[in-house]
Computed example of a mutant assay.
Amino acid sequence: MTGTALAFLQDARRRSDVCRSLDWIPKFTTPSGAAKPSSPDALLHYRRHHADRTDGANRMNGTDDGNGDGNDVRGGVMLRAFIEVDRATMGPERLATKLSSYARLRSYTPAPVTRQRQQPFPEPIQESRRRRYPLFPRLLFILDGTGPTGVEVRIHALRAAARDVAPAGFLRDVPVLTTPMTDLLRHGPTAPVWRPIQEPDHRTGWMHTRHP
């Protein structure tokens, strides 16, 4: 298991949240139709037991105020995140193209499978997927393998790419956050070390609301 995964698991244990080794799914490959598939380093499943003091909402009753990813459970809320660990092995512009790939994935509807006998009113495939994942997982970019200047260059590239996906409403509904690996390991994943790509001067936690 990677150091990034251990950071999330240990932080969850410290907070009395639920995130175990099987909740970190490495090399998760997503379908994307005609486009190249998105392959995040991991898909994270995380159950938060209680509200952070900064949330201003009581999560213990299982209700959703927009911070969760759609599956509320008694005593907490489910969160999901695609994890992208960038080790500076590709240029900033190529890194930024991943944002468009995730935007296409969010709007992707797989072609229905042809069957000899169809139900009179079959459920759309996209609706079936949305029932399982009502909201698209948030997207976390963790930047490693470069210094502070390189981190700023890569964040700038992601911010520039955000203009291309803004018309589709992707950034309105899906938090996209970034942080240097050094800050994540030093302070922990739930510390306010994450920078929204639309507002890189702002610092927040990765569980922040979808509508800041």
Rank of each mutant, 00 (worst) to 15 (best):
S107I: 14
R195E: 00
P120H: 14
L95M: 13
L158H: 01
H156I: 04
P180V: 01
A161R: 02
S38M: 03
P137A: 06
T179Q: 03
K36Q: 14
T146M: 10
R163Q: 08
S100Q: 08
R132N: 12
P192D: 15
T63V: 13
H202N: 07
V165E: 04
L105M: 08
Q116D: 12
A88P: 01
Q198V: 14
H187K: 10
R53Q: 10
S100Y: 03
T114V: 13
L135Y: 14
R74P: 03
D173P: 00
L158R: 00
R186G: 08
S39M: 11
L43F: 06
R131D: 11
H208T: 15
L44V: 09
A51P: 07
R47Q: 12
V153I: 08
D69L: 01
L135K: 14
R154H: 08
G33T: 13
G70H: 09
P137H: 04
E199G: 05
P200E: 03
D86V: 05
V153N: 08
V151M: 01
R154V: 02
G76F: 00
V18N: 07
R138I: 04
Q198Y: 09
T114A: 14
A34S: 15
P40F: 05
T146Y: 09
T182R: 15
H50L: 04
K27F: 10
K36R: 15
K98E: 07
P137Y: 01
W206T: 02
A161K: 01
T146I: 10
D17V: 09
A88S: 15
L139T: 01
P124V: 12
L158F: 06
P112F: 10
T29A: 11
C19D: 00
R186L: 13
H45Y: 05
L44C: 02
Q118I: 04
T209L: 13
N61L: 14
F121M: 10
P110F: 14
N67V: 12
R20H: 12
P212E: 10
